[in-house]
Design a protein around this nucleic acid. Structure first.
Lengths: 196, 196
DNA sequence: GCGGAAACGGAACGTACCGTGTCGTGTCGT
DNA sequence: ACGACACGACACGGTACGTTCCGTTTCCGC
């Protein structure tokens, strides 16, 4: 995430204040009305300092969001793949449903399409690692015989996360626990059922 | 889509030029760099004329995109639900994969989070009708015994569209025909397989 | 310690685009 | 024929951009 001037002289105090202010402002005015100038003013920091370490507003919020997401959706292994997937998806849905994280992530996603570097960073730092984790958990369920050997695990992950993204970007109501359970059931069924 | 002054005196010539220019600019510079001023200049039109009929850049592109999408993804009924779903999803994926429509839709989605009216318009004019169409097609397959009576059809639609949105917003490579076929298969299987 | 490099906060800059207002022109309904 | 109204054009104040300059503070290396 750190961009240009390699140094240990960086002020950790300013860094934290910037990330904090970015999330706060995102909650109170919405991503679209968050500006670099406002972040700088709120954090008691010079604009220059922000531009020195981050290339854009999106990059600031990506760093803040990443920290939060990693805490919010740990990957557990209780031995019951259904329960663990429900827990994991529910964690992600819940995080997206509360400000400032929902609006923040929505804003980040919106920047991806005109910011190649941010898109690459999001995939490499956030999405791909978590997809790999999810596939790993599915594979361990495979080893325990809960999922057939030939199952298409990457597809399963997309079928799980897809509806979450779908509702989030279209601003439809987020899934409740029951809906998540039904979704997980269907995905697992689709892996177990024979082709036709 | 038409906003304020109800009239038949509207210049169809200007309207077409605006929609055309908006898509063109979106293709050549990307959604983020399209501005109302640029559209007006390119279309040989006054800014005022654009603001008279549309509330925002997003609304202009939503109108242009809607026209294209309706043409690109017709809903057919050949009697084979699998084949028809593959055709439909492939149509949507293909449209999103070519400029200017992919970038345009991505940009529109990005506006949703800070533009309530645009979000409502998108859902009412584009998403919900097509979801209803899809559910209707699934229901007719149900009547023909290709899908069990109690199947959760709205969930099926989310499982189909979800991965498409997922890849689009994250800018992952679009699905090829084989992947789409596998996805459709899995969704249909999840409806047919018994609970566990 | 001490000197200097570098990050810092603050203020100001020109630029781009916003959304609105005004004005004269042309055209379409009545 | 006439009047209403959409049109193109241009100018306006406002906001946020990204950059630059300045003087200050902090910390690394000698």
């Amino acid at each position: 995430m750190i961009t240009s001037p390699s140094s240990v002289r960086r002020s950790e105090r300013s860094r934290r204040a910037i990330l904090r202010s970015a999330l706060d402002l995102c909650a109170e005015r919405g991503y679209g009305h968050v500006t670099i100038e406002a972040i700088a003013a709120d954090a008691g920091v010079s604009k220059k300092t922000i531009y020195r370490w981050w290339p854009s507003k999106g990059a600031v919020l990506l760093e803040a969001f990443t920290d939060a997401l990693i805490d919010a959706t740990p990957f557990v292994d209780t031995g019951d793949i259904g329960a663990d997937l429900r827990t994991h998806v529910a964690g992600a849905v819940k995080l997206l449903s509360v400000p400032p994280f929902g609006p923040a992530y929505a804003g980040i996603l919106s920047e991806l399409h005109h910011d190649d570097r941010l898109a690459q960073q999001l995939r490499e730092q956030l999405v791909d690692p978590r997809v790999e984790e999810a596939i790993g958990r599915l594979r361990s369920a495979q080893d325990q015989g809960q999922i057939p050997p030939g199952a298409d695990l990457p597809l399963a992950v997309e079928m799980l996360y897809g509806p979450v993204y779908y509702r989030h970007v279209l601003r439809k109501p987020v899934q409740d626990e029951e809906t998540i359970a039904t979704l997980v059931d269907h995905v697992l069924r689709s892996l177990r059922a024979p082709g036709y």
